[in-house]
Nucleic acid binder design. Structure first.
Lengths: 155, 155
DNA sequence: TATTGTTATACTCTATAACTATA
DNA sequence: TATAGTTATAGAGTATAACAATA
């Protein structure tokens, strides 16, 4: 397959990656602004998102879901509990474990996050023709597969 | 334009955004692994990238290029100087200013970063047909424009 | 003996405010 | 008076290691 060593192909790939990184940066900045208005950081919003999706989780489960250490979860839950988004409750069967649940404020904020995600997605993709979105998503799926393999080469 | 309020369109946009975020996360993790092997963090790699692209910059210019405070640049340059990637030099005309340049190690590492970027881009896009890449990039360009407008609504 | 979460400690990125040296 | 960079201070995310309580 000679194409791979073609100069034009090289810069095409480079351009695509550069632009993907640029959009990534812009999107991250935009989301960070929005989260700040809600009194959240990205890490704390991740916690809220997991809890909103799963209803309730132990800190251990949160650590796994977020791919961070249990110690880190302690910090995040301390902060989210201090600002009233979540609440620690005792596990009915295992007195070592802590179950974290959303407060009413946490639930409301999770709803807002969902709405904001929808709003942003419509803002970004709502006026694009279906065919383009489909190709865009197809490419993203391929990239996701490749990146997942890069993350765990044994898989 | 009724399409925007069509349920199918809504979930299509949501799916596209979700997948974009997923790829973003995977890519960030992959790059962070690679940078760690080089003894760099993402922030420090950004500094190296700017210096590699511009040859030399004052700390003030770096702060502007990275969109961080001058104080933050001090921290980053302290760290990069301590690990041998960059060197502070005096400004010939302005004794208040510090010009930061890459050491030989810094130059070598910048070359490695460039190679790694090319390698990753080929890995991700090298075997995709041109038409798909073109649509993918076209969509990214549109997203970039919209996100830029979101960042500065007055523009 | 293994697991859950915490205390202890440390590194990194980031910011604002006050200050020094220079323009 | 304005600018470049630093010291002082602080908040936030992250990690490892040691430890307590519980399984």
């Amino acid at each position: 397959m000679n194409m791979i060593h073609n100069v034009e192909s090289l810069s095409k790939s480079r351009d695509a990656l550069s632009q993907l990184l640029r959009v990534t940066t812009l999107m991250s900045a935009d989301m960070q602004r929005g989260l700040g208005d809600l009194g959240l950081t990205q890490s704390r919003a991740h916690v809220l998102w997991e809890l909103g999706t799963s209803e309730q989780l132990t800190q251990r489960e949160l650590a796994a879901a977020l791919s961070v250490t249990p110690r880190n979860v302690t910090t995040l839950i301390d902060a989210l509990e201090g600002t009233g988004f979540v609440q620690r409750t005792i596990h009915p069967n295992d007195r070592r474990a802590v179950i974290v649940i959303l407060t009413n404020k946490g639930k409301d904020t999770f709803s807002t996050l969902q709405s904001e995600m929808t709003r942003l997605s419509e803002n970004l993709f709502g006026d694009l023709p279906d065919e383009k979105i489909e190709v865009f998503q197809a490419v993203l799926t391929i990239l996701g597969t490749k990146l997942t393999k890069l993350a765990s080469p044994n898989a």
